[in-house]
Design a protein around this nucleic acid. Sequence first.
DNA 1: ACAAAAGTGTTAAGAATACACCCATGT
DNA 2: ACATGGGTGTATTCTTAACACTTTTGT
Lengths: 226, 226
Amino acid sequence: MDAEPEYQGPVVTVDSVLFQLIQNELYVLLTQRAYEPFLGEWALPGGYNHRGETTHEALAGVLGRKAGIEYRALPLTMQLYTFDNVARDPRGHTISVTYMSLAHKAVPAGSDTTQNPQFFPVSKLPKLAYDHKDIILYALQRLRSRISHTNAIFALMPEKFTLTQLQTAYEAVLGHKLDKRNFRKRWLALDVLAPTDELAKDGAHRPAALYRFKQRKLQTLDPTFA
Amino acid sequence: MDAEPEYQGPVVTVDSVLFQLIQNELYVLLTQRAYEPFLGEWALPGGYNHRGETTHEALAGVLGRKAGIEYRALPLTMQLYTFDNVARDPRGHTISVTYMSLAHKAVPAGSDTTQNPQFFPVSKLPKLAYDHKDIILYALQRLRSRISHTNAIFALMPEKFTLTQLQTAYEAVLGHKLDKRNFRKRWLALDVLAPTDELAKDGAHRPAALYRFKQRKLQTLDPTFA
DNA sequence: ACAAAAGTGTTAAGAATACACCCATGT
DNA sequence: ACATGGGTGTATTCTTAACACTTTTGT
């Protein structure tokens, strides 16, 4: 980091992998490219990081402008990886700093943007621009790992939820079923859930107790969930 | 990522956290700054990432020029995190992509560089420029986590080593003692070590069997080591 | 009455931990 | 012969995994 007046660096971009559960399935937010390259193809929301703004600010701008989503309302965002695209990007040397966000209900405002933001199930992704498919799969891996030893799942859940909803969220992310009794035993032993005195009455069956997370922020939980 | 001809982005730098074991203690490579800001203070080896070179190439250049270390000889390098320094860096907006490397014996060639590269024990760090102390502590955390479920430790070991040396390496990184019998039982069950038919004779005691890693590349190991 | 999801404990298997003595060598 | 680190097994505890029936509600 010497003094070096005529510095010229790569173009810096940020890309966002925004996950959300819709009907017990994991969805990811994509936008349709309005410019070359990859005009018309689906891609992760992304954009330039200009001098003077943090990557988080750039991310907030991208999500707001391209998908109508308010970044500050997202309960959890974490950095994933920084990719070099020296050769791959048709526009020349860029590096992209990628973030993963989790949301409970982030509604993309397709109307006031040009990029047609939509959620796609992770299991049925369309053809994607760049290497964005790999990025999504990498993000999924990281997400699975995160929910296995932290409370990160809170960011995919509503304020109040039943234990069955929580279990279903895990199953959607992990891609396999879990044992009901073991799951409940574990979570109730963890001391991170608080019972509310409300019940969810949603059908012709016994009502379920509603719980909430004591802390809606990331914390590490020792045990691991399969 | 619209077309945007007058793009001006942040300065992109790379920083390297290079760990090495010296006499059963974990050391990190530092250089002494030859320019403002922080002239004369110790810092992680770092430098600009110019347009057209990958971050890995930039890293190789930095390690070569500032510390006389041949990047290609390092057995393991992984990306750590990308830090925003919009406000913090006195020279303006930079983002730094940080990497952690592990080496067995990387000899800094202090002579042909201006930056006085030296290894410092992680437990006794000097005052560091920027937030480099935090970066090192973060790297250490990641390293501990890595060696707990992968074979990453191979990158800190010589080609051939005794089980006691391997255990000592773990103890140096983790910062606590391990049980000898359990440690050996575990590693021999893992099927990642191959016995050589050589013995290490290094003192007035029974010679130790020398082992090597079957694969000297990163692989995941199911069990976790405390 | 029946359908549908909520709720609840025990047992068995496997993993992790604690622990102490004999062995081979150099001096 | 003694000092030094190398090498080895078992018993106990704890953790994880497997598993089925009763309860409460709406229709």
